[in-house]
């Protein structure tokens, strides 16, 4: 790819193709569940790993901040709010951007440079319907689910840390967590993560399908997919904070 003009042409064509592909259910339906498993379920360990440590660090940091003036049970409040509103969706998104973005870009990039994408086209199968749509849908559906799990794990690990390493009882922690709880906290996080999933998968597919020039080109596409995926998450995060909060 070179220059903004070519990028615009490619993106414009992409939108047209994406709409047409979505209508072509029979082609992508069979791919959806395998992709949900590959991009979502298989990402659970990474997400849980990130969430456990996020919970621990949040609990420790907030107890350090809340000396004297603020009662210690606010540790629960901060852990809950931070995990649900921000760190759950964003850190999970980042972790998955690495995994999902790289996976998608490398796979589609390899298919592109080995002419498998061309072969699909000659069979009158749209690469958008067969490859892109199921991946984007799967990521859009699975990011929120993995994020929901990560939120739960982050809360639990924060709770566990508070009870075992800080002078806090379960009752106090939960009181803090409930204090300013708002149902919006959860769905705000989940809506965000759905948009992250869509962006990460779309960027991965876009970079992959536009890869050029052998193994090196695939490597470049993969790197770019991950970097752009992470940037997109940060930009979207700010966008949603502006729009929804």
């Amino acid at each position: 790819m070179s220059g903004p003009r070519e990028f615009l042409t490619l993106s414009g064509r992409w939108v047209v193709e994406a709409r047409r592909a979505l209508a072509d259910g029979p082609t992508w339906r069979g791919q959806l569940f395998p992709q949900m498993k590959k991009l979502g379920v298989d990402s659970v360990p990474v997400a849980v790993f990130v969430a456990v440590f996020t919970g621990i660090v949040l609990a420790l940091l907030s107890s350090y901040m809340f000396t004297r003036a603020i009662p210690l049970y606010f540790v629960g409040t901060l852990v809950a709010k931070a995990v649900m509103l921000e760190l759950g969706p964003v850190l999970t998104g980042m972790a998955l951007a690495g995994r999902v973005g790289a996976n998608v870009a490398a796979e589609l990039g390899t298919m592109r440079v080995t002419e498998q994408v061309d072969a699909l086209e000659t069979l009158a199968i749209s690469p958008h319907a067969y490859l892109v749509t199921p991946r984007v849908l799967a990521a859009t559906l699975m990011f929120p689910m993995v994020t929901a799990l990560a939120m739960a794990v982050g809360l639990l690990s924060g709770w566990f840390t508070a009870v075992n390493l800080l002078d806090l009882t379960s009752v106090e922690f939960l009181r803090g967590a409930r204090q300013f709880y708002n149902f919006k906290d959860i769905w705000f996080g989940l809506v965000k993560s759905a948009s992250f999933g869509m962006a990460v998968a779309t960027l991965g597919c876009f970079q992959g399908l536009n890869a050029r020039g052998g193994a090196e080109g695939v490597g470049r596409a993969t790197t770019r997919a991950v970097v752009l995926g992470c940037q997109a998450i940060l930009v979207l995060d700010a966008f949603w904070a502006l729009v929804l909060l």
Partner: peptide
């Protein structure tokens, strides 16, 4: 494209699919 068969120089087989699936994909499409 449905009327044209294309044999690629380097085969361009779908490497995530078995040989049978490679052939079946286009047939099912039709």
């Amino acid at each position: 494209r449905g009327r044209i068969g294309y044999v690629f120089q380097f085969a361009a087989l779908f490497d995530s699919l078995t040989v049978g699936e490679n052939l079946a994909l286009g047939l099912r499409r039709r």
